[in-house]
Design a protein around this nucleic acid. Sequence first.
RNA 1: CGCGGGGUAGAGCAGUUGGCAGCUCGCCAGGCCCAUAACCUGGAGGUCGUAGGUUCAAGUCCUACCCCCGCAACCA
Length: 545
Amino acid sequence: MDKKFYVTTPIYYINDKPHIGSTYTTVAADILARSHRLRGDKTFFLTGTDENSQKSVEAAEKSGKELRVYLDEMAKIWENTWKELGLSFDDFIRTSEERHYKAVKRFWQAVEKSGDIYKDKYERHYCVGCEDFKTDSELNEDDRCPLHPNKDLELVQEENYFFKASAYKDEILQLFHNQKDFVQPPKRLNEIRSYVKNAFNDFSISRESKKVSAGIPVPGDDSQRIYVWFDALINYMSAVGYGTDDELFKKWWPANLHLVGKDIIKFHCALWPAMIMSAAKNDPLLQNEDGTPKLPEQIFAHGFFTVEGQKMSKSLGNAIDPLELAKEYPFDVIRYFFFREIQFGNDGDFNRSRIAERYQTDLANTLGNLLNRAINMSRKYFDGKVPEINSYLTQVEFLACFNMDGTNFIGEDSLTTLWQQIDEYYNTSRIDLALELIWNGTELSAWSLNGLNKFIEEVKPFKLIKENELQTAQVLYCVLEACRHVAWMIEPVMPEISKQIIYSLGQDPKSEISQNNFQNLKKWGGLEPGSDLPEPKILFPRLGE
RNA sequence: CGCGGGGUAGAGCAGUUGGCAGCUCGCCAGGCCCAUAACCUGGAGGUCGUAGGUUCAAGUCCUACCCCCGCAACCA
């Protein structure tokens, strides 16, 4: 059991500070990284900044600062934002760093050696918005870029280096065929497949140095600088030692998951594998034992946000600063909202009244109140402690006691199944489904937060206590222990809330996790009978007080 | 024939391999009293954008059509 998990976010352009769009991506990576860490996998979570773009130069000029100063300042802002939000990244790569330059150099040379870089003279239309060349067939009726019709296309006449991407077309299509989950969700695979089939041409991968002031110089040719996408993708390797630390690289590469926005799948799902296929031919570090290239395992493309139904934009002033948002709600609430409200992979709307609704119903009423009522009863009936029980009732005994049918049962036996499902969802990046399951359960099992509230209603410990203390103890223990499990189930999404739940049960999350590995944590009975229950705090105070 | 997303209950959404149409909120009527005016039960409310087609069976597959959203800049 020596599994590793290497997850990345895209590296962000830093011509402005982070907003909720980039926050969403980074939080997703954080959740998946946390879920793997919790499960004992060796985990590496990478994020960073893309600094070799011409856009950076323009932004620096606009701010009147020197490029270097500007980049340092902005990179700091990004890194600090993630830190303040409590995101658990292990490294923060900047493509202006030495290690990245070294990686790019090595990579370029490997590709060159494979004979996939050639010089060609081209007169082509270049769209500054896309940072990409456009063929005639890609232009709209007015001969403009369909994505940026208000931008004049540059007619570029120069001799550039090209990458023979088209040579890998078949191999990539084969990859899509063999590895159906290489691109997730499936609709993105369809999209990218038709792109590769129809429009996957050789890429220009350099510009003349005299025309651009940003970019890494082409190894051995200072008159050319490397096209930003060609260098940017390599960050996923440079951060784990490619070109600087072979052992480290072997430990982490290939990446298990590249998390990207739906707008950049072309680069990640087609160009990037082609680049690696090429470089791998002449770099043993990039080869599997059988000589095949070490490609990333999966690329997951998430959707975009609108804000209150409108596109996020500066002119509308609705680009939300995550740090401001974190003042309105605990950030865990935002994290919960992101992944409960929106199916991961789909577009969604960032809507304040929906956040309030989720907060009030899911978090305050269902989760917070459940915990509160269970703890209060236990404290009241059992002298401020977790009820003492000599032995646990089995499911059969339980059902007999309370005349329930199996689907209503909350307890040990149905727990294993639930955990399996939760693990599966986290493993396949279906964070939204995990949360839905925890809150709503399924038709087959009432094991859920809603189910726990029903269970209390059905068994009525507040009445039962007058007749049978032993049974009441069993019931309340069940509910409290179930809450402990819920805390661990939601830990990746709501790490702070999770801790608070564990504390409120009189346990210490740190010692729980250090004394028990994850397998133990998942077992029934981890909550110590007879331990002290502190007076409950309101986890989610009602809004608008 | 630019690219992509989408039209399912009043609102917001889910529906994987075709097999009784679900979830959250809201609404109506009850219940409970341990709890954060919270919790539980029952109910009303949908010809699944339109028109055809395939099938024993279509929200789901096929064809055509209609409508909505994003695609200057910021930007995942």
